[in-house]
């Protein structure tokens, strides 16, 4: 069974399973212990607490004591949490950033510091504490902001945060494009900035210090906008959604070329918003979306078929083009549903017949569907201009 369709075959929202998006992915560390016995690969190997493998930075002796860990997720994910399990003492200050464009630009997700204002220029706020104007109106229009708080004292070697931290309760991802944007990331970057304790001397030489992390976890779901239940590797080995509902793209973020009868939309719990195929009666392979027609139809159908074949024409290739007429013995989708008019070269006054009945326009005294006979009371003349004349 396909989770993207119900038992009756109707589309329904489907989402990939919750995973640790960091698992097995390669982390780029700006500093790694040169002995190679504590590589960055140990950050994402899901080693258990009992035999935890740890990445270690070089031994740092001068400020600034910044070390950066960059984790490409391979594609967009919708994040739920980020966590770092330290093998060394947890640093006093750390910042977590996200990228939504595969590392070209970065924006902050969260800061941890005992001195938020001095280190990051941000007010310190305990998790769960509401922002100054905690309301939908104040937060949602410009999007959630990265919080800065002291590392929680009781979490031991763990530094973790939820993407929901600091947001007003009752926020619904389905109905909030701002929240959808907030939780979306293609890459995560952690900047460890300030060791804990007396080593945190400002300027010049400091006591040797090593950052060491056993596990970097990024909990979330592969982002498919409700149109795929799993992500798979494509032919080039890139992670992409296994799109359903007539969608395509790495995140199922657009309709497939022929599925443009209505605009693309993200699926919600109540409505799958599947992309619909254009209705072209089997006579066109391409169509385009027309917003004006969509509005006029009561937001039901806006697809316009392109390049109708088999001598058909119209928005849905639903009638016959000029010079052809509908053969009522065949269904509209038949490739020979439209027959050539075949108007008689002498008896007909033109080459174009009625597109529905096939009746050619006949000269005076001529009859028949193709105007190939003289009407009763008329007989054939020798003149091609007036082929039938009244019988005297």
């Amino acid at each position: 069974t396909d989770p993207c369709y119900d038992e009756a075959g109707a589309p329904q929202r489907c989402i990939p399973e919750f995973v640790n998006a960091a698992l097995g992915r390669e982390v780029q560390a700006s500093s790694t212990d040169p002995r190679q016995t504590h590589p960055a690969a140990f950050l994402t190997d899901a080693s258990a607490a009992a035999d935890r493998t740890c990445w270690r930075s070089e031994t740092l002796t001068r400020t600034p004591l910044n070390v950066t860990l960059t984790l490409p997720l391979g594609k967009a994910f919708e994040l739920v949490y980020v966590s770092l399990h330290f093998c060394s003492a947890r640093p006093d200050s750390a910042a977590v950033f996200k990228s939504q464009d595969h590392g070209r630009s970065w924006s902050p997700l969260r800061f941890f510091s005992s001195q938020c204002s001095r280190v990051y220029g941000r007010p310190s706020r305990a998790v769960g504490q509401a922002p100054a104007q905690a309301s939908l109106g104040s937060i949602v229009p410009r999007g959630p902001e990265a919080l800065c708080s002291e590392p929680p004292p009781r979490t031991g070697p763990l530094l973790a945060f939820s993407m929901q931290d600091g947001l007003p309760p009752g926020q619904d991802l389905d109905s909030s494009p701002v929240l959808q944007d907030w939780v979306t990331a293609t890459d995560i970057r952690v900047v460890l900035t300030r060791p804990v304790g007396p080593r945190a001397t400002e300027g010049g030489v400091v006591a040797p210090y090593v950052y060491s992390v056993g596990e970097l976890q990024v909990g979330g779901r592969c982002k498919c906008n409700g149109h795929a239940s799993r992500c798979v590797a494509d032919t080039q080995g890139r992670l992409v959604c296994d799109c359903r509902h007539g969608t395509e793209g790495p995140d199922c973020e657009r309709c497939k070329p022929f599925y443009c009868d209505r605009p693309w939309q993200r699926a919600t719990a109540h409505e799958a918003h599947a992309c619909l195929a254009c209705s072209c009666n089997g006579h066109a392979r391409r169509c385009r979306f027309n917003m004006e027609l969509y509005r006029l139809s009561g937001r039901r159908s806006g697809g316009v078929c392109l390049n109708c074949r088999h001598n058909t024409a119209g928005r849905h290739c639903h009638y016959c083009r000029e010079g052809f007429y509908r053969d009522q013995t065949r269904v509209l989708s038949h490739r020979r549903a439209c027959k050539a008019c075949d108007c008689h070269p002498v008896g007909a006054a033109g080459k174009t017949c009625n597109q529905t009945t096939g009746q050619c326009p006949c000269k005076d005294g001529v009859t028949g569907l193709t105007c190939n006979r003289c009407a009763p009371g008329f007989q054939q003349s020798r003149s091609p201009v007036a082929p039938c004349v009244k019988i005297p």
């Binding site: 006979r373 054939q380 201009v385």
Partner: peptide, 23 residues
């Protein structure tokens, strides 16, 4: 009664060469 179809051979195209269809 079904009338016979127009017989193209009976037409005189002398004055209408330019209207004559390919036959």
């Amino acid at each position: 009664d079904v009338m016979p179809t127009l017989d193209m051979a009976l037409f005189d195209w002398t004055d209408y060469e330019d209207l004559k269809p390919d036959m």
